[in-house]
């Protein structure tokens, strides 16, 4: 389980599904974005200065929290354990007396690195909050409704993700069609590459979905997918999409328009 999605709602939804084996009640834990987030929370709760963290106390609290998380059947991610180890290391270092005979200058505070990380992390946490409120504000802003001509405007490049999604959609559709006849056609990668090249020499663009549909078997669909990636790599074609999640088209790249980069 990743702790990335550990919003309270998400956890609740998960437990809902496996309710039969779970106790009848559920305590909700505040969702922490990660170990640094938890540490900041503890520092705030204990009302101590971030520049002068009472390591022993905070370490104890931190470990207690991890135990609590385990009791709650939440998987404690390794990131939390790494920080626990760091805290214990700092604590032990602070307990050791400084060597009076040492001629090296007074050593840095062992907490220093951690404090720096916390301060840096805190800034980005604040930045995330600013983004959150900006997004909220922008959700209240509306632009004119779509016009039929909008699709004529500059295309956005489709990403490998979009292509993969289109591939998956085609696979899904295929599942719905019950196939009785099992005919294995042995089209090779080279043949598929030629086929697409040929299609693109007769028309300037083809719909990617159509290419997948044309494929006779699952295997051919996979070859189509790989052939498309290969042709993009060779800059023979580019994949464009007019709207997010929209149809993807393969366009022939005009050789002299290939950017140098």
């Amino acid at each position: 389980m990743t702790h990335e999605n550990s919003s309270p709602l998400h956890d609740w939804e998960e437990t809902e599904n496996e309710r039969s084996s779970e106790p009848a009640y559920r305590v909700q834990l505040e969702g922490f974005e990660g170990p640094l987030d938890l540490l900041l929370h503890l520092i705030k709760k204990e009302q101590v200065s971030i520049y002068d963290i009472p390591i022993a106390r905070i370490t104890e609290q931190y470990l207690q929290h991890l135990c609590l998380m385990q009791e709650m059947n939440l998987a404690v991610a390794s990131d939390f354990l790494v920080l626990a180890a760091t805290l214990i290391y700092i604590k032990s270092k602070m307990l050791l007396p400084r060597d009076p005979a040492s001629d090296t200058p007074v050593e840095d505070d062992p907490r220093r690195e951690l404090v720096d990380r916390l301060l840096e992390y805190q800034k980005f946490k604040a930045a995330a909050e600013v983004l959150w409120s900006r997004a909220e504000m922008e959700q209240g802003v509306f632009v004119r409704g779509p016009l039929p001509t909008d699709d004529h405007n500059p295309e956005v490049s489709a990403t490998a993700f979009d292509l993969f999604n289109a591939f998956q959609r085609a696979l899904e559709r295929r599942k719905e069609i019950l196939q009785v006849e099992i005919a294995r056609d042995e089209i090779t990668m080279a043949e598929k590459l030629d086929q697409i090249r040929e299609l693109l020499s007769s028309s300037d663009r083809i719909e990617v979905d159509e290419l997948f549909e044309r494929a006779g078997s699952r295997r051919e669909m996979v070859i189509t997918f790989l052939a498309l990636l290969e042709l993009v790599r060779q800059t023979f074609l580019r994949l464009v999409q007019q709207i997010a999640y929209g149809r993807i088209y393969a366009l022939r790249v005009v050789p002299n328009l290939i950017p140098k980069s």
Binding site: T2, H3, E4, N5, E33, G34, P35, L36, A77, D79, V82, L83, R117, E120, Y121, F124
Partner: peptide
């Protein structure tokens, strides 16, 4: 490194 947490899914 900065977030102290795995960020693959985000």
């Amino acid at each position: 490194e900065l977030r102290g947490v795995s960020s693959v899914s985000s």
